[in-house]
Nucleic acid binder design. Sequence first.
DNA 1: GCGTCCAGGTCTACC
DNA 2: GGTAGACCTGGACGC
Length: 318
Amino acid sequence: MTKLNSRFRIVLNPKRPYDFGLTVHKPAGWSLFSSFEVYENGKLWTALHIGNRLVGLKLHASGRRNARDIVIDAFTEKKPGKVFVNLVRGTLRAKLSADEDLKDFYSLAKRDKILTNTLKDLYGMHSTEDADLFSIALLAITLQMAPLKRSEEMLDSLIRNYGEVAEFDDRKVGVPPLPQTLANISAKELKSRCKLGYRARYIVKLAAVISRGFPSLEELRCLGQDEAKNKIMTLPGIGDYSADIINPGGGFPIDVWSADVFGKLFYGKEPKNGRKEIKRIKKEGVKRWGLWSWYAFFYVVNDLENLSKRLGITLRLQ
DNA sequence: GCGTCCAGGTCTACC
DNA sequence: GGTAGACCTGGACGC
């Protein structure tokens, strides 16, 4: 448990449209930085590592509905200097996509029979960047070959057993372990303590590779979508699907579940064998939405219930 | 209660 | 370059 008693405030003025609630607390239940974060009455308490320091965050929106700022109270163990405050500001500005312009995506979505149905519910929702490469890679690996409930149990167990707890503002938020922590744990121990199965050896190898030095999410973003994906796929246990989840440049991560969803949306029926149809459905999505494929995926899976009603089809929820 | 099947992929060996 | 088979665990299902 790390007590974070020093506090400073950052205010971000995001590019409009920007819906704070939808962006930091996605309708599909995706967390911003940690599965242990808390969202109550329009406020989010979360935590992550920035520049090797644990930082607790309390975020809320302020101002008129169409001109709202993001107000962030940041908590650290020791009083930060000006350089660190600027680092936190820049990091959060990027991770919260405060400078992102969605004009081209909305222009595409308004002309698309599927996406146009999502705009009413999700207008102003931005995709956000995960806390760090290792955190999102852990999520991707625990999602492999497991129902969502089991994936959540594996990830929660990793955080409870090996993660850190940030205590600030009368809240406690667990954050995923650092790669250097898991690089020194045996796969056997990890497997039995966190019920990870064969994924344990991937995670230990992955932790070793990242802790020895690997481009950060920020650096991968600068490489461009294809080059970043090729680089990410060199990581142990990370294949095509997981790389599309991790890639900060975006991807179209189709697995068996989403193959059912997009199969219905594209062809009107669920594929008979989802696993065999993944390639075809992925190709269709990328052809249809191009550079905005990730955003299209993101808007569809966060609006399944409403899409089901509007299109008159049953889309399997997560 | 017990056995079998299989799930929101990836890797490896083999052809 | 393509593909079958192995890989953990736990819930669903049939008996």
